[in-house]
């Protein structure tokens, strides 16, 4: 057999041409529709950037193009939506970040004792913990927020005598309180599920080594449980970012609040489009980062 023949034998068979099935046509049409939608969106939003783009391009343009750009810059009044509201959007974004990170941290701190109580054999601890978790997971976050923000106002004299009124008077603290309680219930369930997922052998092994129960829990069980809980924790953060939009309803100017304010002033639908872009980017970036973290932390489990 000559080398030529061998090559002919080793060559893979030509790929069969895929027919234009209904699915393929539908898929291409849908992708085209998405492409048109995104193209339109980009052009629509780029209208806000005409001035900086023209200013940036001016030195590179020549002839009639630069004349056009100069004339446009001189005669046109650039009154773009983002030009007016960019500061508000940035401050709203920062407030959203603040609310999300603070309530997640406080919730995490609360969730550990809650999960322990929930898993406890002692009914006096486990039943109230179960009721707490059931309540916060079973009712809408918006209703909980109203209950805390408006409802605690009913107890103003009592709260004043306790010296806590300054806390419940402030919408921002109320939101933090409501979100932290809400997320603590979810996080407690994540944690409990993860801890109970660790096999008994780990406890027994640690006991055989003479480790005390607290040391076993914090040094042996919890690290493994957190690994299991990583993905649900990521989902919880995303839920919190999305849920934080609710803060805008009780007068907080987070990203959503600034968006609503900008819309009520300008009646420009762009307000909501920009918010959508920012929220989507936040969630997507977080999701990507989380995938990386998970890949890194579980690299010893990969084969």
């Amino acid at each position: 057999m000559t080398t030529h023949d061998q090559q002919a034998l080793l060559k893979p068979p030509p790929l069969a041409k895929r027919p234009w099935s209904t699915a393929r046509i539908a898929g291409h049409v849908l992708v085209a529709l998405w492409a048109i939608a995104f193209g339109y969106l980009i052009i629509y939003l780029l209208g806000n950037l005409e001035k900086p783009i023209l200013e940036f391009l001016l030195p590179y343009l020549s002839g009639s193009w630069s004349e056009y750009a100069l004339r446009r810059l001189e005669t046109h009044e650039f009154d773009s939506f983002m030009g007016r509201y960019v500061k508000q959007y940035i401050s709203g974004f920062l407030v959203t970040l603040q609310i999300v990170s603070l309530s997640l941290l406080i919730g995490a701190a609360l969730s550990l004792p809650l999960a322990m109580a929930r898993a406890s054999k002692w009914k006096l601890l486990s039943v109230p913990a179960y009721a707490y978790v059931y309540f916060f997971r079973g009712t809408p976050l918006l209703a909980q927020t109203f209950l805390i923000y408006y409802g605690f106002g009913s107890f103003r004299p009592e709260l004043q005598s306790l010296g806590l009124w300054w806390f419940f008077r402030d919408a921002f603290y109320c939101i933090l309180f409501a979100f932290a309680l809400n997320t603590s219930a979810y996080q407690a369930e994540i944690l409990r599920g993860a801890v109970q997922n660790i096999s008994r052998g780990q406890w027994e092994g640690a006991a055989a080594l003479g480790l005390s129960r607290p040391v076993t829990f914090f040094k042996v069980i919890l690290p493994q449980a957190l690994m299991v809980a990583l993905r649900p924790y990521g989902n919880e953060i995303i839920l919190m970012i999305k849920g934080s939009a609710i803060a805008s309803i009780v007068t907080i100017f987070d990203l959503m609040g600034e968006t609503r304010r900008a819309y009520s002033r300008s009646y420009d639908f762009q307000a909501y489009i920009w918010a959508a872009v920012v929220y989507l980017m936040m969630v997507e970036v977080l999701r990507r980062i989380w995938d990386r973290i998970e890949l890194r932390l579980t690299r010893h489990l990969k084969r």
Partner: peptide, 13 residues
């Protein structure tokens, strides 16, 4: 990825 509240406003307005 969108907050449900924002989806609601996007549809409504």
């Amino acid at each position: 990825g969108l907050p449900e509240l924002l989806t609601l406003f996007l549809v409504y307005y």
